[in-house]
């Protein structure tokens, strides 16, 4: 005791800086980078994300993606058309790149929507318990009885096939998954003594939920986000394949697959290109999710 008495001179920031150490975030990064498959996942996903963001700079939408060009229809890969052309003479590579933009942003918004709704419902159910927990979770159980795809199809079919309805359909059908995972993490964390400790120093419920409960649930929730993002991308493609999602000529991997069906035997690259795009985006997100789970899990909960 009594080793440091020169504290008067130094200010808060100076001292905090003087003893700067790795933050938990940095440690998570280090663990994540050590995992080779996770790094592969994040590289693939970064490439897809890059293509989606800069799609307009890579290939022009009007001239290459939607414009019919019957003269050049059904060509194989060449220098002009890296992945060939489809039955309307549109560049397959350009359509795949622009399809990434569609899938990624719809998937992102749908995931965010379901995280928001599911997260709030789950947090309320887990933290307050009792009848409100019963009510929310029984509704979620009912929703879980219906296959997600069927639920999404029903919503789109009832309200009409457009982008907004598709986001709603995919987002709402995944709410129960988030609600369940958030509720169970909240229940675990709520039982920890430091939550009681916060109450003992006079913290309000809101502070406790935000600062102590939700922050400590972040790990499993982030992992779930990547997995649901992947499932949302798959759902967009499935709905579009069935004609309930993005309508041609707008490019989307699912509707590209659907259009390529009739020419599949003679021109397999037409299905391979969007198929691989779907596969790679979901594969990379799953690797990313696994990597994050391993990186977020240990040590902090020692």
């Amino acid at each position: 005791m009594g080793s440091n008495t020169t504290t008067e001179v130094l200010t808060r920031n100076a001292i905090l800086k003087q003893f700067k150490k790795k933050t938990p975030m940095q440690e998570i990064m280090i663990r994540f980078v050590r995992n080779r498959m996770a790094v592969v996942g994040i590289i693939i996903f970064a490439v897809i994300l890059f293509c989606a963001i800069f799609a307009d700079f890579i290939c022009d939408y009007d001239t290459m993606v939607v414009k019919l060009n019957v003269a050049e229809r059904l060509q194989g890969p060449s220098a002009a058309h890296w992945l060939g052309t489809d039955k309307s003479g549109r560049d397959v590579f350009a359509r795949v790149i622009h399809g990434a933009r569609t899938s990624l942003w719809i998937g992102f918004v749908a995931t965010a929507l379901s995280l928001l709704i599911g997260g709030i419902l789950g947090a309320i159910a887990g933290f307050f318990g009792k009848w409100i927990d019963e009510l929310i979770m029984r509704v979620m159980d009912v929703m879980l009885c219906l296959p997600e795809m069927l639920l999404a199809m029903a919503i789109v079919a009832a309200m009409g096939a457009n982008v907004v309805n598709m986001i709603l359909a995919i987002g709402i059908s995944r709410v129960p998954r988030f609600a369940r995972i958030v509720r169970s993490s909240v229940l675990t964390v709520r039982g920890m003594e430091y939550v009681e400790a916060a109450r003992a120093i006079g913290a309000r419920n809101g502070t406790i939920i935000a600062r102590h409960v939700l922050l400590n649930c972040l790990g499993p929730i982030i992992v779930q986000v990547t997995l649901i993002f992947a499932s949302a991308i798959l759902a967009i493609s499935s709905l579009s394949f069935l004609g309930l999602g993005i309508q041609p000529p707008a490019p989307e991997w699912g509707n590209m697959l659907s259009e390529a069906r009739e020419n599949m035997r003679d021109f397999p690259h037409l299905v391979l290109a969007p198929g691989m795009a779907i596969f790679l985006s979901i594969f990379s997100l799953n690797l990313l999710g696994d990597g994050l789970r391993d990186a977020l899990d240990p040590k902090l909960k020692q």
Partner: peptide, 20 residues
């Protein structure tokens, strides 16, 4: 308000602190 005056020290120093 009264909690300022009445405090608790916990048994388990491993679970009574927020790990973050």
């Amino acid at each position: 308000d009264l909690r300022k005056e009445m405090q608790l020290i916990f048994q388990d120093p491993f679970s009574s602190l927020d790990p973050r």
